[in-house]
Nucleic acid binder design. Structure first.
Length: 210
DNA sequence: ACATTAAGTGATT
DNA sequence: AATCACTTAATGT
């Protein structure tokens, strides 16, 4: 993973690889950060949470990426402001926070961390824009597409209630919006599952010259 | 068959 | 867009 020998050695002795099944909550709001996860395989879904339990989907962390939230927290020994859930069965490289801090002496590690931060910042801006400007139906579609892309599976196993919670909107609204999507042929609904017709939609969009 | 949970509906603000 | 009250449908035991 790294070319510098000292860093490579430290990394391979200290970092452990762990596997988690989809749905596992890796990190909860308020948890103290002791480990920094790097996604090797699978993906993580990151959610924010307000003071009394209401969640909010933020973004996904894909293979090769890491949680910049944890990186910023580790030196300050802060608690997590976010929640991380395994989206697709994942293998994570767990880096103890103190090492992540010590390794800042290695330019290679600094660059890795810096790049991770920069990329995340960009994506975070993107999601903020969506929260601010997109209507709920557009947010819902975007959310579905992102989750499908993060898993590589077109049928999401989630209830309307789950989705409603992550989008911060009442369940009835999600139900109705999903029905609209179904009427447009973008989605097929069944109890506890949603099939997203990604290919069909992409096809239609290209036919219309969009 | 019954209880529980998910989803659908209409009315109200 | 949110909330309520209620119905219907699917699922688990």
């Amino acid at each position: 993973m790294f070319t510098e020998q000292a860093l490579q050695d430290a990394f391979s002795t200290v970092v452990k690889r762990r596997s988690f099944p989809a749905g596992t909550v890796i990190m909860q709001v308020g948890d103290t950060i002791t480990q920094i996860p790097i996604v090797e395989k699978g993906s993580l879904r990151i959610l924010a949470q307000d003071t009394e339990g209401k969640e909010r989907f933020l973004y996904h962390i894909m293979p090769g990426e890491t949680c910049s939230m944890s990186l910023t927290c580790c030196e300050a020994k802060k608690t997590s402001g976010i929640m991380a859930v395994v989206e697709e069965d994942a293998d994570l490289l767990m880096v103890p926070a103190r090492y992540a801090d010590e390794w800042m002496v290695y330019p290679e590690w600094r660059r890795y961390v810096g790049a991770a931060q920069a990329q995340r910042f960009g994506e975070l801006l993107e999601t903020i824009e969506k929260l601010a400007f997109l209507k709920m139906d557009e947010q819902l579609w975007d959310y579905l597409v992102k989750r499908v892309q993060a898993t590589g599976v077109t049928t999401l196993k989630a209830t309307h209630q789950d989705i409603a919670q992550e989008l911060g909107s009442p369940r009835e609204v999600v139900t109705r919006l999903l029905q609209q999507l179904q009427a447009r042929g973008m989605v097929t609904l069944s109890r506890g599952a949603i099939e997203v017709h990604l290919a069909d939609v992409a096809e239609r969009a290209s036919e219309e010259g969009l």
